[in-house]
Design a protein around this nucleic acid. Sequence first.
DNA 1: GCAAACTTTGACGATGGCGTCAAAAATAAA
DNA 2: TTTATTTTTGACGCCATCGTCAAAGTTTGC
Lengths: 199, 199
Amino acid sequence: MAGRRQFDEQHTLGRILDVFWHQGYGATSMQDLATATGVQRGSLYNAYQDKESLFLRVFGDYADAFIADAGAALDQPDVRRALEDFFDFTIESMTRGTPPRGCLSTKTATDTQADAEPIRAAIRGMLDRLEAAMTERLSRPDAAGLLTVPPAEAARVLVTMTRGTVVMERVYQDPERLRATARSMITMLLAGRREPAAT
Amino acid sequence: MAGRRQFDEQHTLGRILDVFWHQGYGATSMQDLATATGVQRGSLYNAYQDKESLFLRVFGDYADAFIADAGAALDQPDVRRALEDFFDFTIESMTRGTPPRGCLSTKTATDTQADAEPIRAAIRGMLDRLEAAMTERLSRPDAAGLLTVPPAEAARVLVTMTRGTVVMERVYQDPERLRATARSMITMLLAGRREPAAT
DNA sequence: GCAAACTTTGACGATGGCGTCAAAAATAAA
DNA sequence: TTTATTTTTGACGCCATCGTCAAAGTTTGC
């Protein structure tokens, strides 16, 4: 039972991501990962160094997928529609699973056992990319004049808002409530007028 | 060394709150609390049942103080000033300490090891109170006509936003950035006009 | 004073985490 | 076929946690 790697890496990493996502970094032991994947603890150590390296490995995949999907949702001709789809996507993502899995990056950001700098950096990288995608969308012509604050500022508020939504999901476990709050947020952002108001 | 309680309860509970705040519920062991307070583990079990009960005990004090201070910040004649003071207070609260302690309720909300229903309920209770205080403030006459969405909706967005701010603090560790984002948020909210815009 | 009530203390056994390592096994290269 | 490389496997030692409990020690109230 050895020689070349015995387990399907794609499949294994997928399951590992799932365990981290549901349980959080700090609360997940190597044994948990071994049990969930059927790969022995020693094999995981051998293949991926330690828990932190393993986490960074799967977090990278997670972040790439998240950014891609978020970008796709934002890529709509109508700004309001784009923002609604964006929030719908984030809400759908965090409420998936039984129990709902929440948001991996937020769980990790607030996990005191995940305060190693490489982990922080990975989260920062993901949020920076999200903010960039949002800024780009809000800078398109169809948003001009509609926004109550400049695109870059708005993007930062919206990204912060998604983090808040994640927390509210944990507390109230009510997706419809989250969607309603998101709609309010969008209305606030798009309350601008094309013509400057008369003085 | 026995008979009547040997330790100063106020002082001990204060230290315990501090440990929970910094380390988070799940990452804190009874031994941590014993070490931090100088009270033996057995005495803590004897006096407070278990970790969950102890947490709920100090969380109650925390929530009361938080709501009181938040309410005081909101109690300003000028809405914009009230909201700025409110966000300044929350940001100051989460960045205090070395290292910055963050926000206890948010850390707990996203802690998978703190998913017992009594704990969830306590967090819900605190956020409900915060939302109520915010709604009340935004319903006062001086805010009328300024808001881009109704008071209750705005309150829910703002409370969600404070949760997001907490997460961003963990990630970027930059208080000034948080304040700037808060100001953008306030601008978006107060972009309403007293007179309905001419068609 | 004396007895009851309570707190403190230290230890117990069970469980589970961590990272390491040597031996066993299987494949790849020569 | 033989050798080198790599993975798997299971066990190791160490340390920390948990909740409990009996013994020891104080204080309170009768």
